[in-house]
Amino acid sequence: MERLERRMGLLAALPIGLLLMVSFIMPMVVIAGFAIMPQKVFELAHMPDFSSFAVIWEQGYYKSLLRSLGLAFLTTAILFVVCWPLAYGMAKVFGRFTLVITVLVVLLLFVSENIRLFGWNLTLMKGGLIEGHLRAWTGLSFETPLYTWPAIVFGMCYVYFPFMLFPLAQGIALVPDDARLAAMDMGAGPWRILFEIEMPLAAPGIVVGCLLTFVLSAGAVAEAKLLGGRSVVVLTDDVESAFTYAQNWPLGSALSLMLIVIVALIALVPISRIDLDAIMGRRK
């Protein structure tokens, strides 16, 4: 009986498995293949070497990798702090009003990311919505905050906000009210309750939210381009240049592979330690 069930499960998973093989795993394999090809070749039929990785090291591409990871980390940290109170309210306090917030945030996603970022660009640029009005009315002026790394972090926080908010709210909903009340009853203050009761019990939501934000931010292209304006070069810029202007597929592939492997390693540790079933509502 159990064997039959297992076989049925395998069979049911076959179509999506095949689709993922072709559309998801295959490109990765191609990337991995190109990463060990000599510089500037366009087939996989060459003697493998590791020249791309040598180039990455020699020409300092690892710096943009560190920059990408740093900005992604900062974005994740800021979003976590910003979203926690709101997510808490959505899960425990607001009641029906939660639906309104959900709808508002989801509506935001209906507009293309690039358009929304252009909107910020127009708002923040010199002579844009804010500075332009200020100058016209008061004659005062200020330098645009655009084309700096904080602008990129701001843009990523803005774009990936829902990816942190909703998993966090889900996670906080897992915290039983009684556990919080019991801790309070035994003399625990709000910070202790937050760190020792609520955060550990909401861990599945925290991990999912942080991973989504981190992985997406580490691979983000548009924010750096539109708000960073190439003044801050992140790894995804390098990947794009290598594939387009430089026509160096092996270098682009090696850079991508590096990012994929590092982000996967960072993601695997917490994922292996949380109970994903809990947040999907399938508690054992």
């Binding site: 039983p176 009684d178 556990a179 009340l181 019991a182 801790a183 309070m184 009853d185 035994m186 003399g187 625990a188 203050g189 009761i197 550990p200 019990l201 861990a203």
Partner: peptide, 19 residues
């Protein structure tokens, strides 16, 4: 406030900390 009172409640759910 509850955290200062010399009382302690055993909840219906027990409210043990599962983690």
């Amino acid at each position: 406030p509850a955290d200062k009172r010399p009382t302690c409640m055993v909840f219906q759910s027990l409210a043990l900390f599962p983690h």
